[in-house]
């Protein structure tokens, strides 16, 4: 795909969001999302992610500036037209007794159905396809209030799918989910943007996930101007540090994640290689030691014992001890 064929789905021009002109949470927002692009709106809790998302979705009035969907301004779109341009997945939990996945997803066809909302055969096929696409085929006729949060969120994504909008907005869709469910949902969304050329805007406070998946990141923080860029540029330009760092938390540029600062770090010499060394070093870091060749009186060496099992030899002021596990080693330290 070259640059000229990219279709702009959403653009924000000099947008201010918040509750009033004098009290705007964020102003001068100038960003856009293209077809096939996965954008993450990233910021700590309380940064105003939800306010921005709600303003773009049309649930909150904007304070100033313009919101464009393709070539239409949001003010000039009635509900019907907007429903065919943008679909949303929200944080709120939907729990309706006896509402099946099929019925829920079927409601996504609302903008296309007639007066009584009856689904045609084509609609029904599309609903089943979407349910299959999000991996809920087995649960199509299961009631959503008997499903897990992750499954319910997948059903909401299927609803957004059958709405057949070029642009999908998701407000913290993974906030309540455990780690595997989070990954699953994110991969599903990534696939949607790639295979179906949908534009996706997703708000999250999960930085590591956004770094791995997003094409673009919009960084947002309290009292800071929204910063936009590809994840790697933001890492290199120290923007993550500026937005997220607090006392005791440090963004590790190499690993792309956050580390706890240890106020005092004691030197220890680590000798060895491979995966065992890597985790040994993590364990030592965790309890406040740092790898250093200058350490003379503290040393850990990875060795193979007589049975070719790994053992950790700790040398402390000239005395050596062998440990079979990292646990017994760090208990000695």
């Amino acid at each position: 795909m070259n640059k000229t064929t990219k279709q702009q789905l959403l653009s924000l021009v000099n947008l201010s969001v918040g509750y009033s002109k004098d009290d705007a949470l964020h102003s001068d927002i100038n960003v856009s999302v293209n077809a096939g692009e996965f954008t993450c709106l990233l910021g700590p809790n309380g940064a105003g992610k939800s306010t921005l998302i709600k303003t773009i979705s049309g649930f909150l009035p904007k304070v100033e500036g313009e919101v464009w969907f393709g070539k239409e301004r949001i003010e000039n779109l009635n509900e019907q037209k907007k429903a065919k341009l943008v679909s949303v997945v929200l944080t709120e939990r939907i729990s309706v007794p006896n509402l099946t996945v099929f019925e829920l997803v079927g409601l996504g066809r609302t903008p296309y159905t007639g007066f009584f909302g009856k689904l045609t055969d084509t609609d029904v096929q599309k609903v089943y396809d979407a349910i299959k696409a999000v991996g809920l085929a087995k649960f199509a006729h299961k009631s959503i209030d008997k499903m897990s949060d992750g499954e319910r969120q997948k059903a909401m994504i299927a609803k957004a799918l059958v709405q057949e909008t070029p642009f999908i907005i998701l407000d913290e869709p993974t906030a309540f989910l455990d780690f595997p469910a989070k990954i699953e949902i994110m991969q599903l969304l990534l696939q949607l943007s790639r295979d179906h050329n949908r534009g996706i805007l997703l708000s999250t406070h999960d930085l590591e996930m956004a770094l791995q998946i997003a094409d673009k990141i919009w960084l947002i923080g309290p009292d800071r101007k929204l910063t936009e860029g590809v994840p790697e540029d933001l890492v290199l330009s120290n923007d993550f540090n500026d937005f997220f760092e607090r006392d005791g938390i440090h963004f590790d540029k190499h690993a792309g994640n956050f580390k706890f600062h240890k106020s005092v770090q004691k030197p220890i010499q680590i000798v060895g290689e491979g995966i065992e060394r890597c985790w040994l070093e993590k364990a030592l870091n965790r309890i406040g030691y740092i790898d250093s060749n200058e350490s003379n009186d503290l040393k850990v060496e990875l060795r193979k014992d007589d049975n070719a099992e790994i053992e950790y030899q700790l040398t402390k002021t000239g005395l050596s001890q062998n440990h079979q596990s990292i646990q017994s080693l760090i208990e000695q330290l």
Partner: peptide, 19 residues
Amino acid sequence: IKPLNIYLLGENYAANLGL
């Protein structure tokens, strides 16, 4: 009937579905 069914999802989802 149709608006009532859409209302099951709450006001925000309902608005987004064109109601």
